[in-house]
């Protein structure tokens, strides 16, 4: 006998398919896909180590920032 489920199977499948569709749409419109399709001169971030950044998100160092006008 099946145990009582706490979810709808179809809803889970639809959510996963929607997630996959969003990923695919993003991918097909990306520079990664353009490069993989042989388009020349496309910049990608295959290597995401950014030595010039000051934080994992790519933020610059406070010491390198230009003071904003009025400061």
């Amino acid at each position: 006998m099946n145990a009582i489920r706490d979810y709808s199977r179809w809803r889970i499948i639809v959510v996963l398919l929607a997630m996959l569709a969003a990923i695919l749409v993003d991918h097909l419109n990306s520079s990664t896909f353009a490069r993989n399709s042989g388009q020349a001169g496309v910049q990608t971030s295959y290597s995401q180590l950014d030595d010039s950044a000051c934080a994992p998100c790519g933020a610059p160092c406070p010491s390198s920032r230009e003071p904003s006008p009025g400061r």
Partner: peptide
């Protein structure tokens, strides 16, 4: 900024 702008143009499939 370099990393965010590249990540925005790239596919999420290459974003670690």
């Amino acid at each position: 900024w370099d990393y965010p702008s590249l990540a925005l143009r790239d596919s999420v499939l290459v974003n670690v």
